[in-house]
Design a protein around this nucleic acid. Structure first.
Lengths: 240, 240
DNA sequence: CGACCACTTGATCATGCTCAACTAGCGTGG
DNA sequence: CCACGCTAGTTGAGCATGATCAAGTGGTCG
C-alpha cells in the first residue's frame, strides 16, 4: 500500500477564509473579523490522503484542525490490536481537544480529506479571550457527547442487523444527494472500518449488508456506493 | 416494591453552601461569593431514594443539580424496552444539559442519594455571565466525552469477563476505602444495572463475577460488597 | 413461617466469530 | 492486451461466547 501522505496546499490567508466553507463553523464562526485574520495568517491548509493519521493516540496535541472536506474517524486501539472507532467527524467539524496535553485517541482521515490546521497556542489563547468561541466549542462537545451516548446504546443493545442499519442511517444523514424519500451516498468507510465502528467482524458486516440488500432496504450500486430507496424502511430496521 | 420517593430537606442557604462538599465542585467552585449566595438562596437540597428518576428521557429540562451523596446513572431506553446505561455520576458531579430543551436520556438515583437542585433559568443566566462557570462546565463535558468513548471501547470490543472487570475497576476507582494495594467498596448497582451498563444479561454478569471470585481476583463479601485484594490483578483482567 | 425478590447455577440455543475458500476489481508488467 | 498478483469483499461451514429458559438458593420482611 502507498504510504498515506499529507501535503501542504497553501499558507492560509484572510482572503482564503472569506470563501471558506467552515467560515461559519464551530471555530471560525465564533471569531471577530480581526481574530479571523490573525488565525488565518497562522493556519495551514493541508491535504491528507485516506488512512493518514492526523493525531496519534498518546501523542502530544500540538495543533487543532477544522475538517474542510472528507471524513475523519476517531479511533481507540487496545494493546493487543483490538480497535474501536468512537466517532466520525464530517466537514466542517473541529478536531482536537483543547487544553489537554495528551490525546487519548487517534484521528485518521477515512477518506481523502482537507483540513485547516491551527497552532495550539494561538487557538488556546483565543478560546481564553473569546467567550463566543468557548461557548461554541462547549456546544460541540455536548453534541459529540450525545452522539457518543447514542452510539453506546447501539454498541451495547442492538443486534448486528440493527447496528449496520444504524451506521447506514448515520452516514445517509450526512449525505447531500437526497431526494424526498430516497438517498444515495458514498460509504466513506471500508468494511473493516465499519466493523470497528460497530463492534463486529468484517464478515458479519458483509453478511448484514447483503441481508439488507436482499430485503430491498438498500441497493449496493458498487462496493462503496449505496442507495436507500426509502429512508423510513431503513429507520424501521434500527429498532424493530 | 416501594415507590421511590424524593423529599426536600431544606431550602439552601449560603450557610449550608460554606460547608458543602460540592463547594469547590464543577458549578459552585466557579462562582463568586455573591453568586454563590444567590444560587444558594434558590437551591433546594433533595433526598432521593434509590430508583428515583431525577430527569425523565424526553422530558423538558426545568432544573439542574449537583450530586451531594450517592450515585446517579444515566440511561437510554429503546421503545421495545432494551436499556443501556450510558454513564455513572458520583458526588460532586453536575447533572443536566444546559441550554437544551429536551433530555435525550434519563437520570436515576442508583443508590439513595442527595442532590442540590438549581432552577434552570438562574443557572443558565449565571453560565452566560460567568466565564469561569462556562469553562468549568465545558471541562466536565470533555471529561464525560472521554469517559463515554472509553466505554464505547469496552462495549464494542471487550469480552464479558473484561467488561465486568472494567466495571469493577471503574467503581473501585471512586471508592474511598483503599489501602496501598487492596480496595473494598459497595457495588452501587444491582446485577440488572450492571448488565445494562455492560450490554450483557444478568446471568452473564453473575457468572463472570463468580469466575473472578474463583480465580481469586475479587472477594464477594456479600451481594453488594466487593473486595479487590490486588488492583493490579484486576487491571490485568481488563485487557489480556 | 412463608412469600418475595435478587441472585446464582445449569442446560440448551442462537447470534455472531473464526477459519477457509472463493470472487471481483484494479494496477503492474510482460 | 492479457496474465498475474494483490487487496477488499463475499460466502460457507463449524464453533464458541453469551443469550434464553428454567430451576434452585439465600436473605429479608411481614
Amino acid at each position: 500500500m502507498d504510504v498515506a501522505r499529507s501535503e501542504v496546499l497553501e499558507i492560509g490567508t484572510s482572503v482564503a477564509c472569506r470563501s471558506c466553507q467552515a467560515r461559519h463553523g464551530v471555530v471560525c464562526g465564533a471569531l471577530s473579523a480581526g481574530q479571523l485574520i490573525e488565525l488565518g495568517r497562522h493556519s495551514l491548509r493541508r491535504k491528507v490522503d485516506a488512512g493518514c493519521e492526523i493525531i496519534a493516540q498518546g501523542s502530544e496535541n500540538s495543533f487543532y484542525s477544522n475538517i474542510m472536506r472528507g471524513v475523519v474517524k476517531l479511533c481507540k486501539v487496545m494493546p493487543d490490536g483490538r480497535q474501536q472507532i468512537v466517532g466520525l467527524q464530517f466537514a466542517p467539524d473541529f478536531v482536537g481537544r483543547p487544553f489537554v496535553r495528551e490525546s487519548t485517541l487517534s484521528a485518521e482521515a477515512a477518506t481523502d480529506a482537507e483540513i485547516c490546521v491551527f497552532p495550539r497556542n494561538l487557538l488556546e489563547r483565543m478560546i481564553l479571550e473569546t467567550r463566543e468561541l468557548q461557548r461554541s466549542l462547549h456546544a460541540q462537545a455536548l453534541i459529540e457527547l450525545d452522539a457518543a451516548r447514542e452510539w453506546m446504546l447501539t454498541l451495547g443493545r442492538r443486534t448486528a442487523e440493527e447496528k449496520v442499519a444504524s451506521l447506514l442511517h448515520l452516514i445517509a444523514a450526512h449525505a447531500e444527494t437526497a431526494t424526498a424519500t430516497s438517498t444515495a451516498f458514498d460509504l466513506s468507510l471500508s468494511r473493516a472500518e465499519i466493523a470497528d465502528f460497530l463492534g463486529l467482524t468484517i464478515e458479519t458486516v458483509s453478511r448484514q449488508l447483503t441481508r439488507l440488500r436482499k430485503s430491498g432496504v438498500i441497493r449496493i450500486e458498487n462496493i462503496r456506493h449505496i442507495t436507500v430507496p426509502d429512508m423510513d424502511a431503513l429507520a424501521k430496521k434500527i429498532s424493530g
